[in-house]
Amino acid sequence: MPEGSASLQLAVGDRVVYPNQGVCRVSAIDVKEVAGQKLTFVTMRREEDGAVVMVPEGKVLAIGVRKVASAE
């Protein structure tokens, strides 16, 4: 991610809310080559049905992904 860009610090195992998809758990953060460029992807699995969603790390905030609020 370019320096100075806002990002959401995620780790494998974090629970997040993905708008219009529901609650997901981060299952992987991997670098993949797409069209000759190396990009970091956040892979999330929906808790409702296990569907897998992959989002480029740089788009996580723009999409509206946020961490699940704690009970505290």
Rank of each mutant, 00 (worst) to 15 (best):
M1K: 13
M1E: 12
M1H: 14
M1C: 02
M1Q: 13
P2E: 12
P2W: 07
P2R: 07
P2D: 11
P2K: 11
P2F: 09
E3W: 03
E3D: 12
E3G: 12
E3H: 09
G4Q: 11
G4V: 13
G4W: 08
S5D: 10
S5V: 12
S5I: 12
S5M: 13
S5G: 13
S5N: 11
A6R: 11
A6Y: 09
A6N: 12
A6L: 11
S7L: 12
S7M: 11
L8E: 07
L8V: 09
L8D: 08
L8K: 08
Q9G: 10
Q9T: 11
Q9A: 10
Q9E: 10
Q9L: 09
Q9P: 10
Q9S: 10
L10F: 08
L10T: 01
L10N: 01
L10K: 01
L10D: 00
L10G: 01
A11Y: 07
A11N: 10
A11Q: 13
A11V: 11
A11K: 14
V12M: 02
G13C: 00
G13W: 01
G13N: 04
G13V: 01
G13K: 01
D14S: 03
D14A: 03
D14M: 07
D14G: 00
D14P: 00
R15G: 01
R15Q: 06
R15V: 13
R15A: 05
R15M: 13
V16M: 03
V16W: 03
V16A: 02
V16T: 01
V17W: 15
V17I: 14
V17E: 09
V17S: 07
V17Y: 15
V17P: 02
Y18K: 04
Y18T: 05
Y18H: 13
P19N: 08
P19H: 06
N20T: 10
N20S: 11
N20H: 09
N20L: 08
Q21Y: 15
Q21L: 15
G22S: 04
G22E: 04
G22C: 03
G22R: 03
G22D: 04
G22P: 02
V23C: 00
V23P: 05
V23K: 03
V23I: 14
V23F: 14
C24F: 15
C24K: 00
C24E: 00
R25N: 03
R25T: 14
R25W: 11
R25G: 02
R25Y: 13
R25K: 07
R25C: 00
V26K: 00
S27H: 08
S27G: 03
S27Y: 11
S27N: 05
S27V: 15
S27I: 15
S27M: 15
A28H: 06
A28S: 14
A28W: 05
I29T: 01
I29F: 06
I29P: 01
I29S: 00
I29H: 01
I29N: 00
I29R: 02
I29V: 06
D30N: 10
D30W: 14
D30K: 07
V31C: 00
V31D: 04
K32L: 14
K32S: 06
K32V: 14
K32R: 14
E33N: 08
E33P: 03
E33Q: 07
E33M: 12
V34H: 06
V34W: 07
V34T: 05
V34E: 06
A35Y: 09
A35K: 10
A35H: 13
A35S: 09
A35T: 04
A35C: 05
A35Q: 10
A35F: 09
G36I: 01
G36P: 00
G36Y: 02
G36S: 03
G36F: 02
G36H: 03
Q37N: 08
Q37A: 08
Q37S: 08
Q37F: 06
Q37K: 14
Q37R: 11
K38G: 03
K38R: 09
K38H: 07
K38I: 10
K38W: 11
K38M: 11
K38V: 08
L39W: 06
L39K: 07
L39S: 05
L39A: 06
L39R: 06
L39F: 09
L39D: 05
T40A: 07
T40L: 10
T40S: 08
T40I: 13
F41Q: 03
F41D: 01
F41G: 00
F41N: 02
V42K: 00
V42S: 00
V42Q: 00
V42D: 00
V42A: 00
V42H: 00
T43N: 02
T43S: 07
T43H: 06
T43M: 06
T43P: 00
M44G: 01
M44H: 02
R46P: 01
R46M: 04
R46W: 03
R46F: 08
E47H: 03
E47W: 02
E47M: 06
E47C: 03
E47L: 08
E47S: 02
E47Q: 03
E47K: 01
E47F: 04
E48F: 13
E48H: 10
E48L: 13
E48S: 14
D49S: 03
D49E: 02
D49H: 02
G50R: 02
G50L: 03
G50V: 03
G50S: 04
A51F: 14
A51P: 02
A51T: 09
A51M: 12
A51V: 11
A51C: 04
A51I: 09
A51L: 11
V52I: 13
V52E: 12
V52P: 03
V53H: 05
V53Y: 15
V53A: 03
V53L: 15
V53M: 14
V53Q: 03
V53P: 01
V53W: 14
V53S: 04
V53G: 02
M54Q: 09
M54R: 10
V55I: 12
V55M: 09
V55R: 02
V55S: 03
P56I: 13
P56T: 11
P56G: 05
E57F: 15
E57M: 15
E57Y: 15
E57D: 06
E57H: 10
E57K: 08
E57Q: 10
G58M: 09
G58Y: 15
G58K: 14
G58I: 10
G58S: 14
G58P: 07
G58H: 15
K59M: 15
K59D: 15
K59Y: 14
K59I: 14
V60T: 04
V60E: 05
V60S: 05
V60A: 14
V60F: 15
L61N: 14
L61I: 15
L61E: 13
L61G: 13
L61S: 14
L61F: 06
A62C: 07
A62P: 09
I63S: 13
I63F: 07
I63K: 08
I63R: 05
I63N: 10
I63G: 09
G64E: 08
G64V: 09
G64I: 11
G64Q: 07
V65T: 05
V65Q: 04
V65E: 04
V65L: 10
V65R: 04
V65G: 05
V65I: 15
V65A: 06
R66M: 11
R66A: 10
R66Q: 14
R66P: 06
R66I: 15
R66G: 07
K67R: 09
K67A: 07
K67V: 14
K67T: 07
K67H: 08
K67D: 05
V68P: 07
V68R: 05
A69W: 04
A69E: 13
A69C: 08
A69M: 08
A69G: 13
A69D: 11
S70T: 11
S70P: 13
S70A: 11
S70N: 12
S70H: 11
S70D: 13
A71N: 12
A71C: 08
A71E: 12
A71I: 12
A71R: 10
A71Q: 13
A71H: 11
E72V: 10
E72A: 10
E72M: 10
E72I: 11
